[in-house]
């Protein structure tokens, strides 16, 4: 097993699998975020956030998610360093004029670092406040979940207050676009790396990948933007 993970294809397998795992997480995250757009004063979003915070399955998945990020980031850096070395220091004086190669595919590390920078900010804005330091905005409110009155943290108030600041919203929009570009190559590439592709599936995967990437990337950006524009008291 160790010889598998030391090989180039083994490392790419880990990159692909962690990427696929993170892409599933993004869909779940976007699904909960979409509740922010329900105009009920955040009741449904709070119920969703409460479910995500208390569900045992989510609790188990949380450290695995952290591991997924870690593997993806560490191997991304390791692979890129190896690739730079394999490429060598000599550059082509006449440049690279190969057509039909997407910009995203050649800049995955730069895009990844952009997303990581955003992630640090994002975790400081929400995860740290919800799990570690707490926040005045998170005062408990009582909502009805399936007819049962339940006391939950007012996560909506925190999100709403965070998205009242224009610079934060702009950062989210830029990060959303960066994420979309990263995924526009990452989606099909992860399938290719784990060996699930051929001439037919390549077309299907690249098309699906484009739809998925821009749906997710613009979805996150749009939710932040709509919160700023239409959901402020």
């Amino acid at each position: 097993m160790s010889s598998l993970l030391c090989s180039s294809i083994g490392k790419k397998l880990l990159m692909g699998l962690s990427g696929l795992f993170l892409m599933i997480f993004l869909l779940v995250h976007l699904g909960v975020n979409a509740l922010l757009l329900v105009p009920d004063g955040g009741e449904l979003f709070n119920a969703g956030a409460h479910f995500m915070a208390t569900n045992p399955a989510v609790k188990i998945m949380e450290p695995i998610l952290g591991l997924g990020f870690l593997v993806h980031i560490v191997y991304g850096v390791v692979l890129t360093l190896q690739n730079r070395k394999a490429r060598g220091s000599a550059q082509y004086a006449s440049g690279k004029k190969t057509k039909g190669v997407t910009w995203a595919s050649q800049n995955m590390l730069v895009l990844g670092i952009t997303i990581l920078a955003f992630l640090v900010l994002h975790i400081a804005h929400f995860w740290v406040k919800m799990k570690v330091t707490g926040s005045d905005l998170l005062e408990h409110v009582t909502i009805n979940i399936g007819g049962v009155p339940t006391e939950v943290e007012n996560a909506y108030a925190l999100v709403n207050a965070t998205f009242s600041e224009l610079w934060i919203v702009l950062v989210y929009v830029v990060a959303g676009i960066g994420l979309a570009i990263h995924l526009s190559h990452g989606f099909w590439s992860s399938f290719q790396s784990i060996g699930f592709s051929n001439n037919l599936w390549r077309k299907r995967l690249t098309t699906t990948g484009q739809v998925y990437a821009w749906f997710v990337g613009l979805g996150f950006a749009l939710i932040a933007l709509l919160q700023y524009l239409f959901f402020q008291a």
């Binding site: 180039s8 690739n83 190669v101 099909w188």
Partner: peptide, 11 residues
């Protein structure tokens, strides 16, 4: 032999 890893750029 020190060849790099494939990142599926397709060049």
């Amino acid at each position: 032999l020190g060849f790099g890893n494939c990142t599926n750029t397709g060049a």
